[in-house]
Computed example of a mutant assay.
Amino acid sequence: MPTYYAVIGGSRGVGLEIVRQLAANPNNTVYVTARNVEKSVHLVKVVQDAPAQNVVPLQVDVVDHRSLKAAAEQVAQATGGALDVLIHNAAKMDYANGNQFRSLTEYDSMDALDAEFIEAFKVNTLGAIHSIDAFLPLLRKGSTKKIIIISTGGGERNIVWQARLNMTAAYGVTKCAENMVMTKYAAELVDEGFVVAAISPGVVDVTGTNPSPPSAEELADLKRITDKIVKNIPNYGDNPLTPEQSVKKVLGIVHSLGPQDTATFHSVRG
């Protein structure tokens, strides 16, 4: 029986690897969104190389809920109105402005902080709402009824406190809100037999598909975060996973989840 997936945000990194691994099964059809399909060279290659030619790219910006609705309509026309699994991976991790790793006290001005938080909220929090809302009518007709948020331990209060992780403020706060979005949809859909959950892929080396190599400053900031996590959570491990390693574990969790697991947060690190 064919399984229909939608991966929201799959042009590079973890999302791209999710698409690649799902497409390896010829029984799967994978619909994947990117803000600019034509310029998403890594995604174009995955589409071309898929053994069963079962990857369908869709041009979508999660900030624009209308584009998600249009994409859902395209998928519905192709699948008879059904979708089995939605994996929301889109996230704002923009290093270009130098704000990605900042703590609440490290912004140049409160105006800069406000702007960063608002943009992060649009993508990381509202984006998840937009994608789930757009595809929910299809998921209701699917056989699996799974909604998965690709999340982060940096958005979980207990983990942030344990690691004393004061950096990545805008990303962490808005991903925390995204985890609450997951919980709200779980509460909304539990009586319909849905599985709604969040999964952290861990620290993953995605430089192979980044638009440009990380700068020395970015690498130093990343090391600063990793060192703090390892110091305060010694069993976490300081070696980044490859996308292949991480996604194999992510999809293992996705496939294992049942209705009893709805409203839960999982990490590939255990």
Rank of each mutant, 00 (worst) to 15 (best):
T3L: 12
Y4S: 06
Y5T: 05
G10M: 03
G10L: 04
L16H: 00
V19L: 01
R20E: 08
R20F: 05
A24N: 07
N25K: 10
P26K: 15
P26N: 14
N28V: 07
V32K: 11
V32R: 02
N36R: 10
V37M: 02
V37G: 04
K39G: 08
S40M: 08
H42E: 12
K45V: 08
V47L: 04
A50L: 05
V55T: 06
V56G: 06
P57Y: 08
V62F: 08
R66L: 13
R66D: 11
S67I: 03
A70D: 13
A71N: 09
A76W: 05
T79Y: 14
G80H: 14
A82L: 11
D84T: 07
D84V: 07
L86I: 01
H88Q: 12
N89H: 08
A90E: 04
A90S: 15
A91T: 14
R102V: 10
R102E: 13
T105P: 00
E106A: 15
D108H: 11
D114H: 12
A115Q: 10
A115H: 05
E116F: 03
F117N: 03
F117E: 05
A120R: 10
A120W: 05
F121R: 07
L126S: 08
G127M: 07
A128G: 11
I132Y: 15
L139T: 12
K141N: 15
T144I: 11
K146N: 04
I150S: 02
S151F: 02
S151H: 01
E156I: 13
Q162M: 12
Q162A: 13
R164L: 08
M167F: 11
T168G: 00
T168N: 04
G172V: 07
V173T: 15
T174D: 09
E178W: 01
M180V: 06
G193K: 14
F194V: 10
V195L: 01
A197K: 05
S200T: 07
G202W: 00
V204W: 02
V204M: 06
P213F: 05
P213Y: 09
E217I: 11
E218P: 07
A220M: 09
L222A: 12
R224G: 00
T226A: 12
G237T: 07
G237A: 12
T242L: 06
P243I: 00
P243H: 03
E244C: 00
V247P: 04
K249N: 06
I253A: 01
L257Q: 09
G258Q: 08
T262V: 07
T264W: 02
F265A: 03
F265M: 05
F265C: 02
H266W: 13
